[in-house]
Write a protein that binds this DNA or RNA. Structure first.
Lengths: 201, 201
DNA sequence: AAGCACCTCCGACATAGTGTCCGACACCAT
DNA sequence: ATGGTGTCGGACACTATGTCGGAGGTGCTT
């Protein structure tokens, strides 16, 4: 099968077209109910209309594929959360807005994000990637708590950790179980919890 | 290699001795840094001094092995949490005590619990087992919130979900990163969060 | 002592997947 | 026409899973 679309010009952002196509195919396979773990390289390559050796030309192995794809779609989502908590002045309404965006972003890539957390459980490079995302948010939240005088030391670290991982898990569970019509109410409820956790009541 | 110890008498609680031995061996392999996913059946059987076909005589496959082992050591831990939140009268000091026990129990089987969450990411039967544990706690917490009038409907469900999964994740991360000398302070900090989440401030 | 039941073991077999390698093909630029 | 690049299919070696058959050891009963 010929290459998909024109070759990417040097320096052009995003994935090369062949890899972008693999991303789309992988998300489709995941949306069909497959776990990333059960997808073989042969299966992914076939679905992408790509030879197995060509796959190995683009990605050294499956974990590298996942980190490459997730880097494109996951990185921005948690950036939203980090931006809000690090902002010098923020409001509860602003938090609700940020969470609403975060939930929407999660919905757009729910299958890929689930794949990342799935593989992070047993694969070191994917785990390191995922931990870097969430802990980045926790670190900013902890600095915030200490700056506001709400908590210090271990208490601040614990609260920030619960906040970061709890928020990530809450959004993941909400997106999995609830329709998007529930998102505003969910964002409001979650904002309430986070607001309390940040000692802003 | 001959059978380990005497045959278990009918009705005797716990695992049969051969399976108990497999549990000990698996926990040791996990403690050595292996993920459950990378452990082959041949590797587990060899480490247990058991033939591969004998392994298949005791367990249909690896997920079944994990659910069998986890059922023995994980079930009780979350029972502690469920008991506390369901109790008609409870105190913050009682919550701290319960969380301290929960953290200690988690430390005793940290490797097996980590294995469960690892495999739950991609294997349906392990995921169902794990979800049943955590959601059991969330359901009781939600009922508590509604009975106390602290929250209702979606807000109660959201809060209970965050509480259950957040508590589980917070304990897991604490146990992984902190020495047991930090446990009392951690339990106190976490109790404060849970107390607030239950609207008891 | 012999027979039976149970549990165990090793090895063979078929299947699936991974990762590497090689030769061939198509396309593009020179 | 030639060289470079990216692609492809197939072969190969290896690992792991799950099943099957035959053999061995132990304990119990007759």
């Amino acid at each position: 099968m010929p290459s998909v679309t024109r070759p990417r010009r040097p320096g052009e952002p995003g994935l090369p077209p062949a890899q972008q196509h693999v991303l789309e195919v992988v998300e489709r396979l995941l949306a069909d109910g497959h776990t990333f773990t059960e997808l073989s390289i042969g299966r992914i390559a076939d679905a992408a209309g790509m030879g197995r050796s060509t796959f190995y030309g683009h990605f050294p192995d499956k974990p590298a594929l996942l980190v490459r794809l997730a880097g494109v779609v996951v990185g921005d989502a948690l950036g939203l959360a980090r931006e809000w908590v690090a902002a010098p002045a923020h409001t509860r309404a602003g938090l609700v807005d940020t969470l609403t965006e975060l939930v929407a972003e999660h919905r757009r890539h729910v299958h890929l994000i689930r794949a990342v957390t799935e593989v992070a459980g047993y694969e070191p490079t994917v785990q390191a990637f995922w931990r870097a995302q969430i802990d980045g948010f926790a670190a900013v939240a902890q600095a915030r708590l200490e700056r506001d005088g709400t908590a210090t030391g271990l208490e601040a670290e614990t609260a920030a950790t619960v906040l970061a991982w709890g928020t990530e898990r809450a959004i993941a569970l909400h997106v999995e179980r609830r329709p998007d019509t529930d998102d505003p109410a969910f964002a409001t409820a979650l904002a309430g919890r986070i607001w309390s956790a940040l000692g802003r009541d």
